[in-house]
């Protein structure tokens, strides 16, 4: 148990298990850099923190820069440790995108993990750039009109050695990707879909089922891009054929945030998913 029980996460929040699974692989010699996010709250105060490795709290837009500095300092002390940025989707795709892009461009020797709960959950469910089309948030009461920002593709375009997507429902696939990333030199990026019971409006017991459905419906493809080479992993390998994928409606209907979507909007989302998979088929 690398992340200890009794922390401040909401019931059903997958973040403690995600960090635990990460630290199980990277081990005791890890430094976590956490920009403002739900995890800042989970990591506690001076009363004690759940993490068994050092945690550096940072400002929203500075986490990759701070991690680069920590890695340089550790190198000069000849200390071999993994520096991991653990950031939310707002800290990655909106506010932190400039410094993320900077660190990726310099190919700093750090690992960047984005846990994507698709809105600013810590401050009370405001829309972010990574909120999907049609989703309710407090700032998009009728559903978001724009599509989700493709951050993994944006980072991959920097030419970094490793980019991957993962899901907490496929925990061994996620840990295998972390293990692979740990052994690579340079900037490594893993994007993790992290269902949020209060923000996505579903019962806390359904966290894993929804994370699994996101992969099975094709909304969340599991892949890795290693030195520019694209490869589907785990269950997603079998989903190129459209008949193997479940309809996206099965994923949407479990979540209250999509309850206002009309059937035309659902069809539009399904078409977007199908187009995305056709693109993947061309690469593969």
């Amino acid at each position: 148990m690398m992340l200890m029980r009794g922390n401040a996460a909401c019931p059903g929040c997958p973040i403690p298990r995600e960090i635990d699974a990460l630290l199980e692989v990277t081990g005791q010699k890890t430094v976590l850099v956490v920009p403002a996010s739900c995890t800042s709250v989970i990591m506690g105060d001076t009363n004690g923190m759940p993490s068994s490795v050092p945690v550096v709290h940072s400002a929203f837009a500075a986490a990759p820069a701070i991690a680069s500095g920590i890695k340089a300092a550790l190198n000069s002390k000849k200390e071999d440790a993994t520096v991991v940025v653990w950031a939310g989707d707002g800290g990655t795709g909106d506010i932190g995108l400039a410094s993320l892009s900077g660190a990726a461009e310099r190919n700093e020797d750090i690992m960047y993990l984005c846990y994507d709960n698709e809105a600013y959950m810590n401050t009370g469910v405001q829309r972010s750039g990574l909120t999907p089309y049609g989703a309710w948030t407090t700032t998009t009461p009728e559903g978001k009109r724009e599509r989700k920002k493709p951050i993994p593709q944006i980072v991959a375009e920097h030419g970094v050695p490793y980019v991957a997507t993962a899901s907490i429902a496929y925990i061994f696939d996620y840990q295998a990707k972390v293990k692979k990333a740990k052994e690579i030199q340079g900037f490594r990026y893993i994007h993790l879909l992290s269902p949020c019971p209060p923000g996505w409006r579903f019962d806390s017991s359904l966290t894993i089922r929804i994370a699994k459905l996101a992969v099975e419906t094709g909304i969340w493809p599991l892949y890795e891009i290693e030195k520019g080479k694209f490869r589907l992993t785990s269950l997603s390998k079998t989903l190129i054929d459209k008949s193997k994928r479940k309809p996206v409606l099965e994923y949407l209907k479990l979540q209250g945030r999509f309850s206002k979507m009309t059937s035309e909007e659902v069809k539009k989302l399904q078409n977007e998913v199908d187009e995305f998979w056709e693109e993947i088929q061309k690469i593969d």
Binding site: M4, D45, T46, G48, P50, S51
Partner: peptide, 19 residues
Amino acid sequence: IPIARPKIGSSGFTGSWRI
């Protein structure tokens, strides 16, 4: 200097949240 140390139950006994 206020330094946080690893601790089980940093938010207390969270079992009391349970329904």
